[in-house]
Amino acid sequence: MKPAPFRYIAASSVDHALALKAEHGDEARFLAGGQSLIPAMNFRLARPSVLIDINGLGELAGVERSESGEIRIGALTRYHSLERDSRFLTDCPLFADALPHIAHPQIRNRGTIGGNLSHADPASELPAIAVGMQARMRIRSAIGEREVPASEFFQGLLTTDIQNDEMLVEIAFPPPTGRTGACFMEVARRRGDFALAGVAAIVTIDAEGRCSQLRLALCGVGDRAVDASAAAASLIGQPCAGEVIETVAAEVQGMIDPPGNVHASPDYQRHIAGVLAQRAISAAFSRAGHAA
């Protein structure tokens, strides 16, 4: 239950961190909040020979807004600082809903947005939210920078598009359009446990209150965050009505292939996903109606 030996280097700048990563490749890991990496090292499931501590790199932390209303979150931003940022929570209600579900207060004081997304745990809330909100992931290496849509960033269980010499430095969300409401819900065995299933719904309505766009993403029901927006076809152009939302939920249930775990069978996960989809869509509709 103790980490294997490694070399520890506190990076002095992002360039320094990236140069070290280029030098050491997959032998090296970035240490951000450490709330997934350190337990893996304690169990020796992870044995990096070099640990590049990026906690001193303040330029990677914080929330910024562009003139167009795009929101950018630095990779080193900790959950807790988002929880205290009332403007951010108002702008990103999915985060307001989801943050309290992420582990426990002690973990949220350390854990970071970039660490979570780079870890790509399929049961985690944030990958589903990034997919739902169509986030763009900004990735840097010593030799350049690129952007990847969230839908292509997550490639499987604990696997992302990040290459051995790269770091996720920021995620950006497109500005909200029109009358939009969003809601995230999940079911876990206990407070702070991994979700058995979770649903993020983003509903945009037109002047008559009919759905013009619905984004749906799920966590905990596959090997990565699942984009289930295609299930929403029957709701487009419709007002918020129970039967249509039930149809969408049934579509969602048909689209997913939950793996099951010690707490829930695949059938139970599918059931939960359907119920949560109905509730999250209804809540998002109602919030869209109240949006200015």
Partner: peptide, 24 residues
């Protein structure tokens, strides 16, 4: 537990509660 589940090792780090088993 040494993997951040039990909370027994909680201390204050710059005033904020953290798991001391999940830091070096």
């Amino acid at each position: 537990c040494e993997h951040g589940a039990c909370g027994a090792c909680t201390i204050l780090f710059d005033g904020a509660p953290i798991r001391s088993c999940l830091m070096l």
